[in-house]
Nucleic acid binder design. Sequence first.
DNA 1: GCATATATGTCAATAACACTGACATATATT
DNA 2: AATATATGTCAGTGTTATTGACATATATGC
Lengths: 161, 161
Amino acid sequence: MDTPLTDQPDDTAPDAEEELRAGMEHLFFAYRDFIARPDRILTEYGFGRAHHRVIFFVGRYPGMAVRQLLDILQITKQSLSRVLRQLIREGYVEQRQGETDRRQRRLYLTRQGIELERRLSEDQRRRFARAYGAAGPDAVHGFRTVLDLMISGPPKGGGGG
Amino acid sequence: MDTPLTDQPDDTAPDAEEELRAGMEHLFFAYRDFIARPDRILTEYGFGRAHHRVIFFVGRYPGMAVRQLLDILQITKQSLSRVLRQLIREGYVEQRQGETDRRQRRLYLTRQGIELERRLSEDQRRRFARAYGAAGPDAVHGFRTVLDLMISGPPKGGGGG
DNA sequence: GCATATATGTCAATAACACTGACATATATT
DNA sequence: AATATATGTCAGTGTTATTGACATATATGC
């Protein structure tokens, strides 16, 4: 301990500083453990985390356009393209031309895709259910409140990121 | 909407199911926005997210052994090695031989490393501080409770992953 | 209709970050 | 002395991301 991190920042007391860092650390751990199991399942299919994200969001919002998915995932279309191509080729996702805007390729999970989604999210749902159940409704409400406040707004006026 | 995700799982009501998935989605968004700014700063240095993780944990736990860092990050030593070598070579992290166990190379941030850590975590601390402040102490307590319940225990008896 | 913008897709090259496997050294433990 | 642990390195590979360039189909503004 020669140069500990207690130089005192501009406006934060050391205790608050510690509380913030503890929160950051635990968010890291929670996310790390949240994705560990799906990551392992995905290797069976030759898929990666990116495939899971697509499966998750298309499952949650069927008929989603590619553009929306890009905005959510915040990756380039080239990155998404390869992943999406694989998922379509192997029968987990299908595309249908948009009805009002025929440039769009709206995305849907196939039966097979729905099955994979269930399998991937099983551990995650159980993990959430256990934590929610053990913590109780008030804690869950607090959890969601803080989580939502931490999310940047849409990048219209420069969200906060 | 031909095959919506309402097949009914084993033991969960559809509303609870929705609540869980909403939580999962928002955890994804929160984490995505949490790392966006540091990621951009890191490119200036030719570093990546892995460097940030090392900087963060070494800053938080000075004198940490390499083995501990590996357990926390849950990556292979080969992966850590490259990152750590860079950080040491460029003067952000230094190693000192352990006193009780001289096999260990204990890790410390240099002055330069501490500066970088501050810069990287600035947005993250502000983000947490804002969310904590706006949500209030009860919500923060609930947030931490749920987050902690979601983290797998140490992999002694098969933690939960 | 023409110009332009949007939605989507693809090719090529590159980088970050993870992996496995193999091997080496120093030190600790039994 | 044998074995285990802590650390490090070399080589090869795969996934996910990037940038840049270019192409097609469709929508929108004038």
